[in-house]
Each structure stands twice: as C-alpha cells, then as structure tokens.
C-alpha cells in the first residue's frame, strides 16, 4: 500500500511539474492585467526548441535557455500587441497559440538530421535524470519527493518564492496594483507599461519552461502536439488557484494525480467504467471552479485581478 502511494506521488509530482511552471507564469502575467491565451503555443514552442537544442548541443542548460528565450519572444509579441497596440487580448493570445503550435510542428519537420526522414520526431537527446539522495531516497513517500529531477525540485523553490514575491515585497504589491487598478498604480508612480511588459514576458518564460519539462524530462523527445492541450488546462488552473502561486500546486497535483490514480485503478481491474475515470480530472476541475466562484460570492472576496483583460491607456479617465 505504501509502495502504491509512493509511486502515485512520484508520478503526480512529475506530471504536475510542467503545469506548475505554466500556472505560475500565467498567474504573474494575469496579475499584471494581461490575459495570455497563447500558453499552448508557447509551451509547444518551448518543448520543440529545447529538445532541438538538447539534441544538437547535448547541453541541458542551453536547452532550458533556448526555451526561456523563445517563451520571452512569443510573449513579447503578445505584450506588444496588447499593451502598446491595445489589441484584444483574447484574439492576440489565440493567434499566439495558433502560430506557436503550427510553427512548432513545422520546426519538428525541418530541424533534426536529414538522414532521419521524420526529422526531429523519435530522436533521443539529453534529458534530466532524477537525483538519488543517500538515505532519503530509500524511505518510501519521502523518496517520491526527493528522487526527482532538477525541474521538479525547481517547483519546490518556485512556489514559495513566487508567493513571497507577490504578497510580501514592494515589487509584488506594485504588480498587484497594476492588475487591480492601473490608473491608481500609475498615480502612485508605478511604471504601468514597463511592469506589464516585464510580467507578460517573464510569465511567458515560465510557461515555456513548462513545455521544456515535457520534452526534456517527462516524455523525453519531441512528438507533435506533445502538450495535448495542457496549455488550456493551465488557464483553468490559474482560476482554480485564485491567482495565488501557493495554490498553484494543488491544481497541478490534482490534475496530475487523478490521472495517475485512475490509470492505476484501471490496471488493478476495477469495476468503475474507464470512461468515467478518464473524465475525472476534468470534472474535478469544473467542480472546484464552481465551488470557488460560489465561495467568492459568499465571502465577497474576488480572486481575479479587477483590470484583467482591459487595455490601459493613460489618457483615459
């Protein structure tokens, strides 16, 4: 039984890692009042570029750097369109997703050795290995937490740091002010445009890291549409965590965990229909979303940044 829980926890953390990166990235972007629906495209581009770089250079740090740069570039386009040009954020985000997923497939068919007639698909590159820590890696449950690779360890650090930054620092306060009421923030002397740019771009970097986790660690290698729609799930997970990085872990674990559990239930020959089990993660997300909205209405607390999705113009009232 302990062994089973341990193995479920291991895979849950592993599966949740890319979701946590992307969720926290999107939380920062949305806290600045910018809705970025380009997640799916950015994750795919992060996955394909980081894998290509790891294949050619065998250097994982370079691969991560490439993903981060691509994430920055794509979200910079989104930032330019929505902040400077004040374009509709939904439309811009969707076009980033369309562009990103198409271009990622294209790169997968063009990069890679010409001798491999399907190019980048099916190749093996460098990948992150799980750490083995003496003593700790032999204790059940504990080992599921510590015997992970550096990217999963990264979320252990990222979650508290992101929370601390957002709620306990002056910079975090400015960021929240920009998302709640940019006019006031502007009057306070906060450079609204600069912050919006900064957090849209750095958010995009984290999202691309989430994509890189898929192609460098979780399902090493490149296959088309490797994210399988996880970018869209992240948008729900941001609401789920009520724009609080500390809660991002629960959404990601729920999503990663239910899948891990339901496949194990199936393998053990349960009587519950497989179709129902497959539905569970999605149903749970909807149920929790409804509960949270309900709770919000009751407690008069609003999770979403008030100015989310609105273009800011200085001359406006």
């Amino acid at each position: 039984m302990i062994g089973l829980i341990s193995s479920i926890l291991t895979i849950t953390l592993r599966a949740g890692t890319s979701l946590v990166y992307a969720t926290i990235g999107e939380i920062f972007t949305e806290r600045g009042g910018i809705l970025n629906l380009g997640l799916e495209g950015i994750m795919l581009m992060g996955a394909v570029t980081s894998f290509a770089v790891s294949y050619y250079t065998h250097s994982l740090p370079l691969a991560l750097l490439a993903a981060v740069l691509v994430g920055a570039a794509l979200s910079a386009i989104h930032a330019f369109l929505t902040i400077t040009m004040r374009a509709n954020q939904v439309v811009s985000g969707l076009s980033i997703t369309l562009f990103g997923s198409g271009f990622a497939s294209f790169l997968g068919q063009r990069l890679g050795p010409a001798t491999n007639n399907h190019r980048l698909v099916g190749l093996v590159g460098a990948k992150f290995e799980s750490f083995r820590i003496p003593v700790l890696s032999d204790i059940p449950i504990v080992q599921s937490i510590v015997s992970q690779d550096i990217l999963t360890w990264g979320i252990y650090l990222l979650i508290p740091l992101a929370w601390f930054y957002l709620y306990r620092t002056r910079a975090g306060l400015s960021l929240r002010a920009v998302g709640e009421n940019p006019q006031t923030a502007d009057a306070m002397g906060v450079d609204v445009f600069r912050l919006k740019y900064a957090y849209t771009i750095s958010g995009g970097m984290l999202v691309a890291l989430g994509g890189a986790h898929l192609s460098l660690s979780y399902t090493p290698g490149w296959s088309e549409n490797i994210t399988g729609g996880r970018g869209w799930i992240v948008i729900a997970l941001v609401i789920f965590s009520m724009w609080n990085p500390a809660r991002a872990i629960w959404g990601a674990l729920l999503f990663g965990g239910i899948n891990a559990v339901q496949f194990r239930l199936q393998a053990s020959g349960t009587n519950i229909p497989a179709g129902f089990l497959n539905m569970l993660p999605y149903i749970m997300t909807i149920v929790v979303l409804v509960l949270i909205t309900w709770w919000e209405a009751l407690s008069k607390k609003v999770g979403a940044p008030a100015a989310l999705g609105q273009a800011y113009m200085r001359e406006d009232k």
């Binding site: 193995s7 895979i11 599966a15 490797i226 899948n259 891990a260």
Partner: peptide, 13 residues
C-alpha cells in the same frame, strides 16, 4: 504522448 506514458507507467507499477 503524456497520457500514453502515464498509462504505461501505471501498468508497469
């Protein structure tokens, strides 16, 4: 790819 892997890992476990 992700789900297919998770299913396989569950069976291996």
């Amino acid at each position: 790819p992700v789900k297919e892997r998770e299913a396989a890992v569950a069976l291996l476990d």
